[in-house]
């Protein structure tokens, strides 16, 4: 039996070529203290598409994701060199306002992390931060965001209920709605389905296909098959390096690096 048969199958929907680059990373190094966590990363990420980061745990894929909205800033002794350009702006330049960046680059985490507030207040948290107080306007944003996150029909009659009353999958979609409510350009998803059951996972995967019409999605996944199912571009990480990135169908069917092939055929990781 050939080893390549184990490689995930790429579905038809993800084939597409005429993307424009929105994120451009050049010669980027990241250090935690003396630990060299990301090495000479060069990577472009296409606009309004799904890009998946794959690789064994500890390879730096989550670290890179967190450099895109500068969540790494909060970890002491983090040092970044090189260029991270998002839509023409070097996001690590001194002129950049981190809060505005994070508003434009939203994030969904591995564990659903709603606030201990009502469903409504969770979604309205972001808009309120940025100064929207008008009730009608907030209502509109909450409804639109919940609709985009495919949660509206399930919760519209009890928006005042605690977010904790929702199931795990619903909570994660609530977190997506919350991220969308501040009208981002890019949505980062850090293993957003790893804590969910298969049905909830499927719902969120379908959701990403909807969302990519409007947003650029960058996701970290521990699951290669998920990357193959829903991403347009896949990036393979190993030991802090980007080994290879390419259109998903190409990367899985015809990887150019031996290490990529070994990984996707299940020889390690």
């Amino acid at each position: 039996m050939s080893t390549t048969t184990a490689a995930p199958q790429v579905t038809e929907t993800t084939k597409s070529v005429d993307f424009k680059t929105i994120i451009d990373i050049k010669d980027m190094d990241l250090y935690y203290g003396t630990y060299h966590a990301l090495k000479k990363v060069n990577l472009t990420i296409p606009e309004k598409a799904v890009t998946a980061f794959i690789g064994p745990s500890g390879c730096g894929k989550s670290t890179l994701l967190r450099t895109l909205n500068r969540m790494n800033d909060m970890i002491p002794n983090t040092k970044i060199e090189g260029l991270v350009d998002i839509a023409g702006t070097d996001i690590y330049s001194n002129e950049v306002d981190v809060e505005t960046l994070r508003k434009k680059v939203g994030m969904v985490f591995q564990q659903a992390n709603p606030f201990p507030k009502s469903i409504y207040d969770n979604v309205a948290y972001g808009p309120r931060l940025h100064g929207i107080k008008n009730k009608a306007q907030l209502d509109e944003i909450v409804e639109q965001s919940l609709k985009q996150a495919a949660l509206w029909n399930e919760v519209k009659d009890f928006l005042k209920r605690s977010a904790f009353s929702l199931s795990g999958g619903q909570q994660q979609r609530l977190c997506i709605a919350r991220a969308l409510a501040v009208n981002p350009e890019i949505l980062l998803m850090d293993e957003a389905t790893s804590a969910l059951d298969p049905i909830s996972t499927l719902k969120i995967e379908e959701l990403t296909q909807e969302l990519k019409n409007k947003y650029t999605i960058v996701m970290v996944t521990h699951n290669m098959h998920q990357a193959a199912r829903i991403s347009d571009q896949t990036v393979f990480f190993l030991n802090g390096e980007v080994v290879e990135f390419d259109q998903t169908d190409k990367l899985f069917s015809n990887p150019s690096d031996k290490r990529t092939e070994d990984y996707i055929t299940g020889r390690f990781g």
Binding site: F19, K20, T21, I22, D24, T44, P46, E47, I86, A87, G88, T89, I91, E95, V96, D97, T100, L101, K104, E185, E244, F245, D246, S256
Partner: peptide
């Protein structure tokens, strides 16, 4: 690796506000 795709025309205004 492959040919450079064109840059997006989207622009983010990330300058510091008040």
């Amino acid at each position: 690796m492959n040919q450079q795709p064109p840059k997006s025309s989207a622009r983010l205004d990330l300058t510091k506000g008040k």
